[in-house]
Structure formats: structure tokens, C-alpha cells
Design a protein around this nucleic acid. Structure first.
Lengths: 157, 157
DNA sequence: CAAAAAAAGTTTGAGCTTGAAATATAATTT
DNA sequence: AAATTATATTTCAAGCTCAAACTTTTTTTG
């Protein structure tokens, strides 16, 4: 517990800090590039894309709370984004039969079509932006991050 | 250029996409944890911390444009954050002698002291949050991310 | 030198984000 | 049945973020 003495643990902390800073920088760079392209090609945003992607993955729709759980953002946050997507006719709120509190958010047909195009472009962009990583490397990184990340997963049952 | 035929390139793209999604999830998890702790222990935020960290690294101060360059955020963004930090007495805007447009932002003594405490805590938090990565692994990840990231670096000369 | 172009910052408007408080409904207890 | 507790979502205020427009100052150029 004495930082000035325990050199090994101290070095470990420094390495992890360095890793975090690089990781953050890389992530921001990619996010920034994605944001630009989404705006340029689809007049859309990253949060919108994230919501569409989540809804595309769960065809039966997601409750608002499940949606914010999957996306790991706050409850109130999703409300606004879904509001705007609904205005544009990309998603709909469907009443849940036995529960008048909840509603199920679903992609509309238009929403599915719009997202399909965006998803295709998105995959291409990521492939370009991460081209310096070999497939083997990418797989290895995925697995390692996954191990760390899977500690408190959110399952929208 | 035919996705349905070129299986190898397609697999590579899928691996990179998978890597990106994991990476994003991990980054968000760590950021969220840092946000909580900064708020709890210092009544502060991540953007504020980032600005203080940048200013701590450049003791002679940074111009607003250099600051936004280092942090890779928009110009106007920094204005508001610096405004608030200045109100709290953590930073000051200093006039640049030969240029009445520019100002140099610097940490105050109080700013330095506050940041020192936060930086110490920050390093500890990161070390905990990334404890599953060995020091060797952390170093390897840093280097690989670095290679990708160092393409268009911003140097606040 | 005067006009044009470039640079440094701020302001603005819209959207995203959070945590907390408010609202409404449902399920459980008393 | 009434009161309590839990769940689902929205609303709110404050702050973050971006791109674009704008102001002021400096530099370049005809």
C-alpha cells in the first residue's frame, strides 16, 4: 500500500492507465469518424443509430427500460431519442396488453429499411477505420474485452 | 467487392465489427464508472477532469484552440467548460501579449491542488477497473492502439 | 496601404446525457 | 378495501457536444 516502495504494482497501474488513455483516444477517433459519416450520408446521429441497431436485434420490440438497459444509458435519455425517431416514422410505441404503464418500441417497415442501409455502411466504415488490425488480432481483442465486459450483463428478457 | 463471394474479407470485416462493439462497450463501462466516482468524490465531471488533465500536462498554459485540439472536441465546447472552471477558480484566462484575440488558459494554484487529488484517485480507479488485464497485456494493447491512433496527432505548439 | 483572407474565440441552436423528481399504473400487504 | 411498495416511463434542470454563424483581430496580398 506504499506507492513509493511497491514498484511492481505501481508499474502495473501505470501500464493500465496508459492503456486506458490509448483506448479512449482510439474509441473517440472512431466515434468521431462514424458521427461525421452518419451525418453526411444519412443525416443521422450515433445515438439514433444505436437505438435502431438495438431494435433491429430484438424483432419483438423492447420496452423503454429494456432499451436503456441494452444501450446502458439512462432512462430519460432514451425517451427523447425514441420521440424523435417516432416523429420520423422509424419506430412506433406499441401498448403492452396487460400493462398500461409499459410500451414496446418497435422498428417500422421504414425503420427496418433505413437501418439496413445504415448498418451496411457502418460495417464498411468500421472495417476501414480498423483496417490496421488483422482479423486474428481483432478476434483476440474482442475476446479479451469480452471477458472483462461480461461481468454484469443486461438481458432484456 | 462481392460480399457474398469473398468470404475471407467478409470474415475480417465481421471480426473488426465485433471488436469495435466490445471495445465500445468496455470504454462506456469504464467511463460510466469514472463519471460516478468523480461525481461522488469530487462533485465533478469527466469533461472537467479532461480539461484539468490537459492543462496540468502543459504548464505554460494552452490556447483555447490548442486545448480543443488536444482534447479532440469542438471549439465552442471548450468555451463553456473553461467558463465554469474559471468561475470555480480552478483555471484562469491570461491575455497573450502580442495577440488580442487569443488567451492562454492555465491552472491556478487551487486548480493544481484539486487536480492532483483527482489524478491520484483516477489512477487508482483505472487500475481497479482494468485489473483483469495483466501489465504485459496492458502494454501490448497500448502499443497496438497507439500505432493506429498516431496517424494524425495534434501538437499544441 | 486597403481589401481580402485567415485565424482565434464566442455565441447559438439543436440534440444528447445524466440523475433526480414526478406521474401513473400494478402488485403486494395489511 | 386501503395503504404500501414496486415498476415503467416521462419530465426537468444542468451540463456536454457539435456544427455553423458571427465578431474581432491578424496576416496576406494586390
Amino acid at each position: 500500500m506504499d506507492g513509493s516502495v511497491d514498484g511492481a504494482a505501481d508499474m502495473a497501474a501505470k501500464q493500465r492507465l496508459r492503456m486506458w488513455l490509448r483506448m479512449l483516444k482510439s474509441t473517440r477517433r472512431v466515434e468521431s469518424a462514424l458521427r461525421d459519416r452518419l451525418r453526411r450520408d444519412f443525416s443521422s446521429t450515433l445515438p439514433r443509430f444505436d437505438v435502431l441497431a438495438a431494435l433491429d436485434r430484438f424483432e419483438d420490440g423492447l420496452k423503454m427500460s429494456a432499451l436503456s438497459g441494452v444501450l446502458r444509458v439512462s432512462n430519460g435519455n432514451v425517451t427523447g431519442i425514441v420521440d424523435r425517431l417516432a416523429e420520423e416514422g422509424l419506430v412506433v410505441r406499441v401498448q403492452v396488453p396487460g400493462d398500461r404503464r409499459a410500451s414496446l418500441v418497435r422498428l417500422t417497415q421504414k425503420g427496418k429499411e433505413v437501418f439496413a442501409k445504415q448498418a451496411l455502411a457502418h460495417e464498411t466504415w468500421i472495417n476501414e477505420l480498423l483496417e490496421d488490425f488483422t482479423p486474428e488480432e481483432a478476434r483476440m481483442f474482442s475476446d479479451r474485452f469480452d471477458a472483462v465486459t461480461h461481468k454484469d450483463e443486461e438481458d432484456p428478457a
